[in-house]
């Protein structure tokens, strides 16, 4: 067990913030135990409901502030799905929008000091990515039958190279959910850990802690950007994978 601790008295535990604790009392965590994961996911759902349902209840032609935020997000994701997958992909727009909203809100809520970031957990992002991966693969076979396998058979390459390329394509196809999930969790986890490490420095440096605090501010700004970008990247990669399933011509 290697704690990040040195003889100068630093006492930094950058990973403690990711701990999962039961909400009520202490004890073993069963699959149904309400934990801080439950709490922050619930908060994400509540915020999404407030923003997207209560915010648009006016149904105004000239939108209020919250309604225009909801409309902007709707338009953003809708255009993304339409641009990447074409008209056929719009059938899956509600699920993609759900993913986007959940990841975006989880990332932003995780940036509140003292909160818990559900998307920093590989289990969560792996379920999201595996859902996309399995859904897209099944959809590809249902829609295209065996033609879906043409995704791995690069017909534009010389014949001798095709088997080699097929192996590479298959490997890269199966790495997709891994990179898809770890990218999100890794980015969020890295940002939070860095902030925590700097915070540990700030606690130890006394009057010079102004420097780590400036750094924390800068990293925090970067994290806000990363939170949005990673939600965007996760969503657009979902669209790209969906496009592969709908149009497997390579």
């Amino acid at each position: 067990m290697a704690e990040a601790e040195s003889s100068t008295g630093f006492n930094i535990h950058p990973m403690d913030q990711f701990q999962i604790k039961p909400l009520f009392g202490a004890g073993e965590i069963h699959w149904y135990t309400p934990t801080n994961v439950t709490l922050w996911m619930l908060i994400a759902v509540v915020v999404a409901t407030v923003l997207l349902v209560l915010g648009t209840r006016g149904r105004a032609v000239i939108p209020s502030r919250s309604q225009s935020i909801a409309e902007m997000m709707y338009g953003f994701v809708y255009k993304m799905v339409e641009d990447v997958t074409g008209k056929e992909g719009l059938k899956y727009f509600p699920y993609i929008f759900t993913l986007f909203i959940f990841i975006l809100l989880a990332n932003f809520l995780g940036l509140i000091p003292g909160s818990f970031t559900t998307t920093s957990h590989i289990a969560v992002t792996a379920v999201l990515a595996l859902g996309v991966f399995l859904g897209v693969t099944i959809l590809g076979f249902v829609k295209n039958g065996t033609k879906f396998l043409g995704l791995f058979w690069v017909s534009s390459a010389p014949l001798a190279l095709r088997p080699v390329l097929a192996v590479i394509e298959i490997i890269s196809y199966f790495v997709r959910p891994v990179s898809h999930s770890i990218r999100l969790a890794g980015n969020v986890m890295a940002g939070h850990a860095v902030i925590k490490v700097f915070a540990g420095f700030a606690g130890a440096l006394g009057v010079f802690s102004i420097f780590p605090i400036i750094s924390i501010t800068a990293v925090y700004g970067l994290e806000v950007l990363v939170a949005a970008i990673q939600a965007y990247v996760f969503t657009i990669l979902t669209c790209v994978y969906l496009n592969d399933a709908l149009h497997p011509s390579h």
Binding site: I20, W31, M41, T56, E71, Y74, F102, V127
Partner: peptide, 29 residues
């Protein structure tokens, strides 16, 4: 635990969005 609550969250969120929010925004647009 995480997977269970994530699935619950996703299902709830999907139904809220798909049944209420998205049709409303689409009709407004």
């Amino acid at each position: 635990n995480q997977i269970f609550w994530l699935l619950v969250t996703l299902v709830v969120l999907y139904f809220i969005l798909n049944r209420v929010a998205l049709p409303r925004i689409a009709s407004v647009l």
